[in-house]
Design a protein around this nucleic acid. Structure first.
Length: 281
DNA sequence: CGGTACTCCTGAAGGC
DNA sequence: TGCCTTCAGGAGTACC
């Protein structure tokens, strides 16, 4: 389930492989990912030159010189494989999209669960079209702050955990980093979002940035080792404080020298939330 | 309109 | 050992 840090790392990996390259051939091995490919999908890509690689929230945005942008979401099992030369590529199960580039490079999209998707949008309409038009600020950008978060949560009665998953409030956060940030900020995931004080929003905004930046830093280094094998991205599970760690001691409580408190699991809106009953208030 | 439940998909993991 | 069930999750949609 790539969230903002994983998608950003993939973008950084794609940038040198794609920039100024033309797409020689686009091969689709499936009629659809989450959504069907548009009939002219491959034809629109073929012959286009890639002018930039961007990211907004969990979405990759590959700009082309034909006035289209390839919008690419990795769902939860999407993996991107990059090969410098054609003869290095061995097809694997769930390789749905294959891009052959000028210069011999290749980019492959593999997605076992097909929750991801690719679509093409006109460049000038991109910022207004769903989901970008209603998307909240980039958490690592200048428009995100404690004040901005406080304002965005002002009318939200929904639990703060659910609010953090709402891409309209802040972009790019998924289940893992929502849990991690709330633990870091010592805020209980079940609190109504509008009940957070300005100070708590300040703390939470800082925690969100910290958690994402740490994941980015760790991902950058772990990726170098991992991509030698198959080019895909792993998760940075070794650094999770609470996610998928029910029963393990809460690291915040351990840091403070207190008694070890086991991490709890509960379900909110059908999704697992991991938190510490003791320190998250 | 806010909020919840359901839906898509497949592989991993657990139970018997 | 192997089959069956359950679970994981983003985001769109249906529905109250």
């Amino acid at each position: 389930m790539p969230e903002l840090p994983e998608v950003e790392i993939i973008r950084q990996e794609l940038e040198p492989a794609l920039h100024n390259c033309s797409i020689i051939k686009c091969t689709l091995n499936s009629p659809a990912l989450r959504y069907p490919f548009s009939p002219d999908f491959a034809a629109t890509l073929q012959g286009a030159k890639i002018t930039a690689t961007g990211r907004r929230g969990k979405y990759l945005q590959i700009s082309l010189d034909n006035d289209y942008v390839l919008v690419w979401h990795l769902g939860m099992s999407g993996r991107v494989k990059i090969f410098a030369l054609e003869n290095l590529y061995t097809p694997e199960k769930h390789d749905h999209v294959h891009l052959a580039l000028s210069g011999g490079g290749q980019v492959v999209y593999n997605d076992a669960r097909r929750f991801g998707f690719m679509s093409l949008h006109r460049t000038d309409a991109l910022a207004q079209c769903p989901p970008f038009g209603a998307m909240g600020p980039e958490p690592l950008g200048n428009h995100f702050s404690g004040t901005a978060l406080h304002n965005a949560l002002a009318q939200k009665k929904t639990p703060i955990k659910s609010a953090l998953l709402d891409q309209g409030i802040v972009a790019g956060i998924g289940n893992i980093y929502a849990c991690e940030a709330l633990n870091d900020a010592a805020i209980h995931p079940g609190r109504p979002a509008l009940s957070l004080s300005a100070q708590e929003c300040e703390t939470l905004a800082r925690a969100i940035r910290d958690v994402l930046q740490k994941a980015l830093a760790a991902g950058g280094s772990s990726l170098k080792d991992y991509r030698k094998t198959d080019g895909s991205l792993g998760y940075f599970q070794h650094m999770f404080s609470v996610y998928d760690r029910a029963g393990h001691p809460c690291p915040r409580c351990a840091e403070e020298g207190g008694k070890e408190r086991p991490i709890q699991r509960m379900v909110q809106s059908g999704r697992s939330t991991f938190y510490c009953l003791h320190c998250q208030k």
